[in-house]
Amino acid sequence: MSITLQAGEVLEPQTYAIRRSDLVRYAGASGDFNSIHWSDRVATSVGLPGVIAHGMYTMALAAKAVDLWSGGAEVVEFGCKFTNPVVVPDDDRGVDLVVAGTVKSVADGLVTIALEVTCGGQKVLGMPKAVLRA
């Protein structure tokens, strides 16, 4: 598969709504039933502002954006640090996670994309990056 991304290209931001029901489904799929992902009482008792999304779910949504931008190219490397929680209110709306990206380089058969992943204008993933096979 050939990727048509060019160095310096700014990719169309992708927005994903995260609701409590998504956290329940992710918990079932991942086996991570930590109560900070569904109980306000437990989340606040450990110093969180409320129920938070699973870090790996947040990262998976960033990967979904990369897959969309690249047309399903092979991922060679994908990583980030979990720097700020994504607080998910107990309502039908939830919160929006916005994934933006810029192609940093295309060289030696690899495409490197720097990501910016935010919720409510705050970065929630530190140093997120994807490297794809061109």
Rank of each mutant, 00 (worst) to 15 (best):
Y26Q: 07
E116T: 15
V75Y: 02
V42M: 09
G71D: 12
S39C: 08
G120V: 03
Q122N: 12
V88N: 01
M59N: 14
I3H: 14
S21R: 01
D92N: 03
A7G: 03
G101R: 02
Y57R: 04
S30C: 02
A27P: 11
G109C: 00
A29V: 10
V103L: 03
V99P: 14
S70W: 13
E9P: 08
G47Q: 00
G71W: 07
A43C: 01
G121A: 03
V24A: 08
E9F: 10
S105C: 07
L110V: 13
D22C: 00
V76W: 11
A73P: 03
D92I: 00
D40I: 01
N84A: 15
D108S: 15
Q122K: 14
G47T: 01
D92L: 00
L68W: 12
L11S: 05
L132C: 09
M56H: 11
G101V: 03
A73S: 13
D32L: 01
L125D: 08
M127N: 15
T102G: 04
L115T: 10
V42S: 02
S21P: 01
G8P: 04
E77F: 14
R41A: 14
L68S: 15
S70Y: 12
V98K: 09
Y16V: 00
V75F: 08
F33E: 10
T102A: 09
F82H: 02
I18F: 08
L110F: 10
T44Y: 09
N34Y: 01
S45R: 01
V99Q: 10
Y16H: 14
Q122C: 08
E9R: 09
A100L: 09
G55H: 07
G109K: 09
T102P: 04
F33Y: 15
S30T: 06
A7C: 01
R20S: 00
G28Q: 11
G50F: 06
N34G: 08
G31Y: 11
T112L: 03
M56D: 11
V103I: 00
A107G: 04
L5S: 06
I18Q: 03
L5M: 11
S35R: 15
L115I: 05
L5N: 03
T102C: 10
R93I: 06
V111L: 05
K104Q: 14
E77P: 12
G8R: 03
V75G: 05
A27Q: 05
A63R: 13
S45G: 09
Y26E: 07
T83G: 08
V99C: 11
E77A: 15
L5Q: 02
Y26I: 03
K64Y: 13
A60M: 07
G55W: 00
K64L: 14
L5K: 05
Y26H: 07
D22T: 01
D40A: 10
I3Q: 13
F33L: 12
D108C: 12
M59K: 12
D90H: 06
D96C: 07
A63D: 12
I3S: 15
